[in-house]
Structures are given as C-alpha cells and as structure tokens.
Amino acid sequence: MSILLLLLFCASLFFGSRPIPVLQAALDVARRADTVVALILTEVRLPRALIALFAGATLGLCGAAMQGLLRNPLASPGLVGSASGAALGAAVMLYSGLAASFWLALPAGGVAGALSATLLVYLLAGRSAGTATLILAGVAVNSLALSLISLLINLAPSPYAVREIVLWMLGSIANNSLDDFWLMLPGTLLGWLLLAGSGRSLDALTLGEESARTLGVAIDRLRWRVFAAVALAVGSAVSVTGAIGFIGLVTPHLLRPLVGHQPGKLLTVSALGGAILLLCADIAVRLFPAGTEIKVGVLTSLIGAPFFLYLIMKSRRWQT
C-alpha cells in the first residue's frame, strides 16, 4: 500500500490542466531556477498532492479510530461534530468577510469550530456517557451546526458570500498553496500522534467497554484522547480542504478484512487507504475536460454513497 501511495503521489504531480515536464520542473526547482514550470510544480501541483495525502490520511485514520471507539461501523470522523463544526467556523469567517482580509482566519475558524463542536458533544453527553448517548449528542450538534450554516447563507450580505460558503462546503484541494499545507500540518500531526498509541485500547474495546475496563483500559481517558485527536486533525484538514465526504466512512470498511477486523491494526492501514483514495479522487477530477471543474468533495460523495450502499448490502448477505 505504501508503494501504491508513493506512486499515486508522484502521479498526482504529473496531472493538471496543462501537461508540464515534471522532471524538468523538479530539476529547475533543485537549481533554484525561477521557471514557470518550476513555479507550477511548487505552487500548484506539490501543495495539492501534499494536502490530498495528509487530508486523506487524516480522514481514513480518524474514521477508523471513531468506528473502533464507538464500535459502530457507521461512525465517521464527522460524527462528533468536528466536520460540521469546522464548516460552521469557516462559514462564519467567510460570512463576516474576515477570511478575505486575513488569510489565517479561515483555517483558524475551522479548527476553533471543530474543537468547540466536539467539546459541546462531550459536555452534552456527559463524562461517562454510553455510546448511544454520544452518537445522539453528535447528531444533535451536527444538525445545529448545519442549521446555523443555513442561517448564515440565508442572511448573507452578498451573493458573493453565499457563493464562497457553498463552494467551500463542496470541498476542494484545487487552489491551495504550500502555506495552506503548513497551516494544516501541526494540527493533523498532533492528532495522528494522539491516535497512534491508542490501537491496543481500541482492540480491547472489541468485546465491549466492561471487558476493556477489565483489560486495564481507562475508557474515559481513551475517549477524551480520540475525540481531541479527531477534532484537531479533522478540524485542521477540513478547514483547508472544505467538506470531503465518505473517505472517513468508507476507507475503514474497505480495509477491515485485510487486517482480520482488528481495530488497532486498521488505524495505519486506513490512513494509507484514505490518502490513496483522496489522491485518486483528486487526480480523477483533473481528468475531466478543462472548463468543467468538479470539486473533489462532490466526487467522493458521488462515488462514496453508492459504494457504501453496496457495502451494506454485502454485510446484510453475510449476516443472514
């Protein structure tokens, strides 16, 4: 999988609206020559590939962690409010015009929104809440955030703000710079780091919370850790890319049989898988004829939803 990921990452550098001699460009960059192709490589292609890689890995990893923690195959990284919170934060920034005047405002708003939405879910559900209560609190906060976004769109001062908010919500990594990448990096890495050591505890949860407790897992601490990690990582990634659906939900499903359904081992594999899927999707949107730009978030949802249906049908056959 790592090799495939590497290949896709390189391939991602080769595709674009215009073919450029990538190797020549790389040489130019190495020689610090300011040619146009070198600029395209470092300012357009490279950030795009890096962001797809990191955002995809984050979504896959966080999806696997959430599904393991809640022991629910329908859990997605957005379940505890991080994605919709980030969207609300970003929408507020776009609505108020702050995003246009201050380049840090959009991602900062996204991360702040993700963290506060997650915190709200946690406070609503209570410290030692069961899984069902947590999911319900997540659904409530998600719909609150979405309705507030609708309100913002409704009250938007100009059609321009509406367009900005809607386009952002479609999810895209087309027009990001390296600055955007550096902006999302600390949050995502911190989130990854928090999740990295939690694999074994997620394994212990396979037989339920009581059983995990008797295996020495402090459930409350684990939950805090996963929630904080998902809010940080998804919040940072989503504030740069916009809403990208279904990667976090579908990737763990696809790969679970590969690791014998062990939630711990699924983490790394899902991170790789998420990155692969998003790189693929982002390459695919570039293959459409120039002029008809499809947002990558739209594509992942378009492919993800029917695919998810197929997975449900398959698992139903397995159960009966």
Partner: peptide, 13 residues
C-alpha cells in the same frame, strides 16, 4: 481476570 455473563464481539475477529 473477569468473565462476563455474555459477550458480543463488535467485529468478526
């Protein structure tokens, strides 16, 4: 070591 009354595995491991 604790042996619960009933156990369900949430994944087919």
């Amino acid at each position: 070591g604790y042996l619960a009354q009933a156990g369900t595995a949430h994944w087919p491991i």
